[in-house]
Deep mutational scan, measured.
Amino acid sequence: NRHQFAPGTFSGVLQCLVCDKTLLGKESLQCSNCNANVHKGCKDAAPACT
C-alpha cells in the first residue's frame, strides 16, 4: 500500500516514523490513510502504509 502524504497539520511535537527525530509542522508530511508522520526528506524511506 502507498502512503497519501499531505502537509502535516498538527499541534505539539511528534517524532518522524523513519528517523525518530522531532517533526516541526512546516517540514512534516502526514499520510491521510494511516496518519504516519514523516519529514519531507524521509518520505521515500517510510515503511508500507497500513
Rank of each mutant, 00 (worst) to 15 (best):
Ala36Val: 14
Arg2Ala: 01
Cys16Ile: 00
Gly41Ala: 11
Pro47Gln: 07
His3Gly: 03
Gly8Cys: 07
Ser11Glu: 15
Ala45Pro: 06
Asp20Leu: 08
Arg2Trp: 03
Thr9Pro: 01
His3Glu: 04
Glu27Val: 02
Ala48Glu: 09
Gly25Asn: 07
Cys19Glu: 01
Gly12Glu: 13
Ala46Gly: 13
His39Trp: 00
Asn37Val: 07
Ala6Asn: 15
Leu23Ala: 13
Cys16Met: 00
Leu29Arg: 04
Gly25Pro: 13
Cys49Glu: 05
Gly12Phe: 02
Asn33Gln: 13
Gln15Glu: 10
Asn37Leu: 10
Gly8Gln: 07
Cys42His: 00
Gln4Leu: 08
Leu23Cys: 10
His39Cys: 12
Thr9Lys: 07
Ala6Met: 14
Asn35Leu: 05
Gly12Arg: 02
Gly25Arg: 04
His3Trp: 00
Ala48His: 05
Cys31Ala: 01
Asn33Trp: 07
Ala45Gly: 13
Gln15Leu: 06
Asp20Gly: 03
Asp20Ile: 03
Cys19His: 00
Leu17Ala: 12
Ser11Gly: 13
Gln30Pro: 03
Gly12Trp: 02
Ala6Leu: 15
Ser28Ala: 13
Lys26Val: 12
Asn37Gln: 12
Cys42Leu: 02
Thr22Leu: 04
Cys42Asp: 03
Gly25Cys: 08
Asn33His: 09
Cys16Asn: 00
His39Ala: 02
Lys40Gln: 13
Phe5Cys: 01
Lys43Thr: 11
Ala46Ile: 09
Gln4Cys: 11
Asn35Cys: 08
Asp44Thr: 13
Leu14Glu: 10
Asn37Gly: 11
Arg2Tyr: 15
Cys34Arg: 00
Leu14Asp: 12
Thr22Asn: 14
Thr50Trp: 15
Ala45Gln: 13
Gly8Met: 06
Phe5Tyr: 05
Lys40Tyr: 12
Asp20Pro: 02
Asn35Asp: 12
Val38Cys: 15
Leu29Gly: 03
Leu29Met: 10
Lys43Asp: 14
Leu24Trp: 02
Phe10Cys: 11
Cys31Ser: 01
Val38Met: 07
Gly8Asn: 06
Leu17Phe: 09
Leu17Asp: 03
Val13Phe: 05
Lys21Ala: 05
Leu23Thr: 04
Cys19Met: 00
His39Thr: 02
Ala6Ser: 13
His3Leu: 01
Phe10Leu: 10
Gln4Met: 09
Pro47Asp: 08
Ala36Asp: 03
Val38Ala: 07
Thr22Cys: 07
Glu27Ala: 02
Asp44Glu: 14
Lys43Gly: 11
Thr9Trp: 03
Leu17Tyr: 12
Cys19Gln: 00
Leu24Gln: 11
Arg2His: 09
Thr22Phe: 04
Glu27Arg: 00
Gln30Trp: 07
Cys31Lys: 00
His3Phe: 01
Lys26Ala: 14
Ala48Asn: 12
Cys31Phe: 01
Pro7Asp: 04
Phe5Ala: 00
Ala48Asp: 13
Ala36Trp: 07
Leu23Lys: 05
Glu27Pro: 00
Gly25Lys: 04
Ser28Trp: 03
Leu17Ser: 08
Ala46Gln: 09
Ala48Gln: 08
Ala36Met: 10
Gln30Ala: 10
Gln15Arg: 13
Glu27Ile: 00
Gln4Arg: 13
Ser28Glu: 12
Phe10Asn: 11
Gly25Ser: 13
Val13Asn: 15
Lys40Ile: 12
Cys42Gly: 02
Asn35Ser: 11
Thr22Lys: 07
Cys19Ala: 00
Asn1Phe: 12
Glu27Gly: 02
Phe5Thr: 04
Asn35Pro: 05
Leu29Ala: 09
Lys21Met: 08
Ala48Leu: 08
Lys43Ser: 09
Thr9Tyr: 02
Ala46Ser: 11
Arg2Thr: 12
Thr9Ile: 09
Gln30Asn: 11
Ala45Tyr: 07
Ser11Asp: 15
Val38Gly: 01
Leu17Trp: 07
Leu29Pro: 01
Thr22Tyr: 07
Val13Ser: 15
Cys16Gly: 01
His3Lys: 04
Ser28Phe: 07
Cys19Pro: 00
Lys26Gly: 14
Leu14Thr: 11
Gln4Glu: 10
Lys43Glu: 14
Pro47Ile: 13
Leu17Pro: 07
Ala36Ser: 08
Leu17Cys: 07
Lys43Tyr: 09
Ala6Gln: 15
Cys19Val: 00
Pro47Val: 13
Gln4Gly: 05
Gly12Ser: 05
Val13Gly: 10
Pro47Cys: 08
Asn1Arg: 06
Asp20Ser: 08
Ala6Gly: 13
Cys42Pro: 00
Ala6Arg: 15
Ser32Lys: 14
Ala48Met: 08
Arg2Val: 02
Ser11Pro: 13
Gln30Asp: 09
Cys19Lys: 00
Lys21Phe: 05
Ser32Met: 07
Phe5Val: 02
Thr50Pro: 05
Ser32Ala: 12
Asn33Arg: 09
Gly12Met: 07
Asn35Val: 05
Pro47Phe: 11
Thr9Arg: 04
Gly25Glu: 14
Leu24Tyr: 13
Phe5Met: 11
Lys21Pro: 00
Arg2Gly: 01
Ala6Cys: 14
Leu23Tyr: 11
Lys21Val: 09
Ser32Gln: 10
Gln15Gly: 06
Gly8Ile: 03
Leu17His: 04
Cys49Gly: 04
Val13Ala: 09
Leu29Asn: 14
Cys42Glu: 07
Thr22Pro: 13
Asn37Ser: 08
Val13Met: 14
Cys19Tyr: 00
Ala48Gly: 12
Leu29Val: 10
Glu27Met: 03
Ala46Leu: 13
Leu23Gly: 13
Gly41Cys: 10
Thr50Tyr: 00
Cys31Gln: 01
Cys49Thr: 06
Gln4Trp: 03
His3Cys: 07
Gly12Asn: 04
Asp44Leu: 10
Thr9Asn: 11
Cys31Thr: 02
Lys43Cys: 12
Ser28Arg: 04
Ala46Glu: 03
Gly41Leu: 12
Ser32Tyr: 08
Thr9Gly: 05
Ser11Ile: 06
Ser11Phe: 05
Cys31Asp: 07
Pro47Lys: 10
Ser28Met: 13
Asp44Ile: 04
Lys40Trp: 07
Leu24Phe: 06
Gly41Asp: 13
His3Arg: 01
Asp44Phe: 06
His3Val: 02
Ala36Pro: 01
Cys34Ser: 01
Gln15Trp: 04
Pro7Leu: 06
Gly25Ile: 06
Ser11Thr: 13
Gly8Tyr: 06
Gly25Thr: 11
Leu24Ser: 14
Gly25Asp: 14
Ser11Met: 09
Leu24Ala: 12
Asn37His: 08
Leu23Trp: 03
Asp44His: 13
Ser32Gly: 11
Ser28Val: 08
Val13Arg: 14
Thr50Glu: 15
Asn33Phe: 05
Gln30Gly: 12
Ser11Tyr: 03
Phe5His: 01
Pro7Phe: 04
Cys16Lys: 01
Gln15Cys: 06
Cys19Asn: 00
Cys34Tyr: 01
Gln15Asp: 12
Val18Pro: 01
Val13Pro: 14
Lys43Pro: 04
Gln4Ile: 15
Asn1Ser: 10
Glu27Leu: 02
Phe5Lys: 02
Arg2Cys: 08
Asp20Ala: 06
Pro7His: 08
Val13His: 10
Leu24Met: 07
Leu14Lys: 11
Arg2Glu: 02
Lys21Tyr: 06
Pro7Met: 12
Cys19Trp: 00
Pro7Cys: 04
Ser28Ile: 06
Lys26Ile: 13
Gln15Lys: 15
Phe10Tyr: 12
His3Tyr: 01
